[in-house]
Design a protein around this nucleic acid. Structure first.
Lengths: 250, 250
DNA sequence: CGCTGTGAAGTTCTTCACAGCA
DNA sequence: TGCTGTGAAGAACTTCACAGCG
């Protein structure tokens, strides 16, 4: 990626891995709150979040000592602290570029507008789409207006939901306009200057990772025959190992 | 996450972190191939993939010694080797549950059917959606047929694109029917038995991670209640190290 | 010479295990 | 007593730096 995570000296230096889990904890905490649960132990919270309790406690300890020994964590208080740490106590206007199937899905995604984020605009380059309403009260604007929207509404987070070919161009314009955080759904590696944060969501990469594990499970260690020309044999060093099948081990 | 992947002793034990990057390399390699490039160096490939070259070389070394010293890697040969490692030399039928905005976006996603994956079915619980054609030749089926589809078509990868409330139920049914790999787009932590692999794609988590970094960037100035201030981030003098980042020349 | 492949050093993240407080 | 918070051990991953081969 393009950032040094916790190298910054002034900041508290919360590990990147912890940051990535805080949103999960936060979601679980909201669920607890809705159910009227006032206090949770690290064990309970960890189970609901799908992590181990030591990890959860260490994660939370980076924010401060917000638990009570012998009792657990106060749900509401922790919600507030985690939200604050993540910067969700302020509202983040977001611009979505690309109003295709995905852009529309995003615009209609409830959790979007819910906590901390607000869709400032959905833009598209296709004239036939501009002007149509794709979500309640959300009319697609022209992507010519990227700079204008970013500047006027103080957008610092952009979502790219365009075809791959258009992504880098859109990215460049977003960055030039002042956006410093980008969520990229297009299947390309974006090139950005230092100081801009990019996260990618890539369906096909996720599927390929799943395919790898699925293959390993079915363990059809194919003889790798169809080798074609090139450096024929190469005799893969330690290929043999047939042992690793059962992933279980309870 | 429940069990460890490369804890298996006999297996080749390719690090999980490496697996997660192979699809990126593969994509870049395809791009090279399309452009008629026959050979790439680790430096070039790494730049295009947005990683550092030592990491790329180490990653590839886990697959075997497929490069030529003093020259680089043969593009076609490497494409084949990476594909084989990821299990993409076989075809994976995938079932998508949920034909809402997101399900439709997925069904229309080109890269889906392209390499290694095939949509076996798109299912939904809503009777008014069942029977409609959401993509070329893709008619939505009833989610009553989950078990049937999985069994008949030998599906081992399922994609959950339902509302949060329905996700766990769908997941349980997929798993019971024999699916062992799940890609979850619903904002919930899925509970699965050991041996089932779940990957999640969660928009709001990604946004929250971006918000954290965006906040930190703007916090460089005023503490507390500091309104957004795009563009301020460039300061970060101590971040120096960012010299030769993944900035590829265009 | 140029570039790969890799031992070794360095860094980050996870897990253990328990001291210590409510 | 029960549970948090944390030092310390361990595992995973990254980066360095260079031997070695084409």
């Amino acid at each position: 990626m393009s950032r040094r995570p916790n190298a910054a000296p002034g900041s508290q230096g919360i590990p990147e891995a912890t940051i990535a889990r805080l949103p999960v904890y936060l979601r679980v905490l909201y669920t607890c709150a809705e159910q009227g649960i006032a206090t949770v132990s690290s064990e309970e919270l960890a189970a609901a979040a799908g992590v181990n309790s030591a990890k959860l406690r260490k994660d939370l300890s980076h924010l401060g000592s917000y638990g009570t020994r012998g009792v657990g964590y106060d749900v509401d208080y922790l919600v507030y602290q985690v939200s604050r740490e993540l910067g969700l106590t302020q509202d983040w206007p977001v611009v979505i570029v690309g109003a295709g199937n995905l852009g529309r899905a995003l615009a209609n995604y409830g959790g979007f507008a819910s906590r901390g984020f607000r869709i400032a605009a959905v833009l598209d380059a296709d004239r036939t789409v501009v002007g149509t309403e794709i979500a309640a009260g959300q009319v697609v604007g022209s992507s010519d207006a990227i700079e204008e929207v970013v500047a006027e509404r103080g957008v610092s987070i952009g979502v790219i939901a365009t075809p791959a070919a258009a992504a880098q161009g859109v990215c460049d314009r977003l960055v030039a306009a002042g956006v410093t955080s980008i969520l990229n759904f297009a299947p390309v590696v974006l090139n950005v200057p230092a100081g801009v944060d990019v996260r990618k969501v890539d369906l096909s990469i996720e599927l390929q990772i799943l395919a790898f594990h699925a293959q390993r499970r079915s363990d059809v260690r194919v003889p790798a025959s169809g080798k074609r020309q090139y450096r024929g044999g190469v005799a893969l060093p330690a290929l043999a190992g047939s042992a690793g099948e059962s992933v279980t081990a309870p």
